[in-house]
Design a binder for these strands. Structure first.
Lengths: 146, 146
DNA sequence: AGAAATTGCTGCGTCGCGCAGCGGAATGGT
DNA sequence: ACCATTCCGCTGCGCGACGCAGCAATTTCT
């Protein structure tokens, strides 16, 4: 298989199919946790980047501030999130994930993490580094396309 | 960086962050096209795997048959999709994407495709093959986790 | 031929979302 | 020091996507 074929197989097939599965999985996990797709996305953001204000969260998950406010209400009453007043700026509220919230999403993804580690066990160190380099650039390029 | 660090960087950071960006981008594209997140997901499925019945589509995008029916109504009146009766089984209806529908989603992702091709230009043929191998296994593992 | 299962489609209630507007808090200009 | 402006998060309100239950049409099983 020559270079162009490889490129096309990646950009035209493998990556789109993977993206479809990722989005689908998100829906399934959300239903499984009894919350909205947007809610799990919010929990992911909190888990990856730490506490954030409702406004920042709203921008991250592509919501208006009003909808973010109610999303936080849901997550809070579900015990996944906590509202903490910001001492430096008393208008702001910091949203931080609870241990239970993080544990619940982690549990939902435990199977996938396990499978992925198994997949990666067949790769050499150099290949792992290559994959890491690609995934990082892909994340960056995806973010730039928003 | 040793092997364990590489693994953790991938499974614990790079991959989750990429997934967050993918889901976010889907929302943005949906809003940009003036349709629902679910609708674009459906268009992706149709674009990747070809025509399908409403029932199969409903299972793919995690919807009930009733909701899928109305989703198809929306996509049809938006000119993105066509209902074609199945000659073999007259209960069934085949949903096939229109040229316009495929073109619209393709246009929405043109920027990302361009960026990704640019990213990949820095990879050797062997590295490309490694990435392809990983992406395929990841797609499969993600599908298995649903 | 009759019963049972399958497929897709419609009322109806629920709920997440955007929009517009609110009060409280910080910031800049005079 | 004062007031206007801006920013932040939070609430009414209507819209619309969704799940649930039930329907007719068709196929399949006995």
């Amino acid at each position: 298989m020559d270079r162009d074929k490889l490129m096309d197989a990646l950009v035209g097939q493998a990556l789109p199919e993977w993206a479809i599965e990722v989005v689908s999985l998100n829906s399934v996990v959300a239903a499984q946790l009894g919350v909205t797709d947007t809610d799990v996305q919010c929990l992911h953001v909190l888990g990856q980047y730490g506490p954030a204000t409702p406004g920042a969260l709203a921008r991250q998950v592509n919501l208006t501030s009003g909808s973010a406010s109610r999303m936080i209400d849901r997550l809070e009453s579900a015990g996944c999130v906590r509202r903490v007043p910001d001492a430096a700026d008393r208008r702001k509220v910091l949203i931080e994930p609870t241990e239970e919230g993080l544990a619940r999403v982690a549990a939902a993804y435990a199977g996938l993490v396990e499978r992925t580690r198994a997949d990666l066990s067949g790769f050499s160190d150099a290949e792992l580094a290559t994959v890491l380099r690609f995934v990082r650039s892909a994340a960056s390029s995806t973010a730039a396309s928003r």
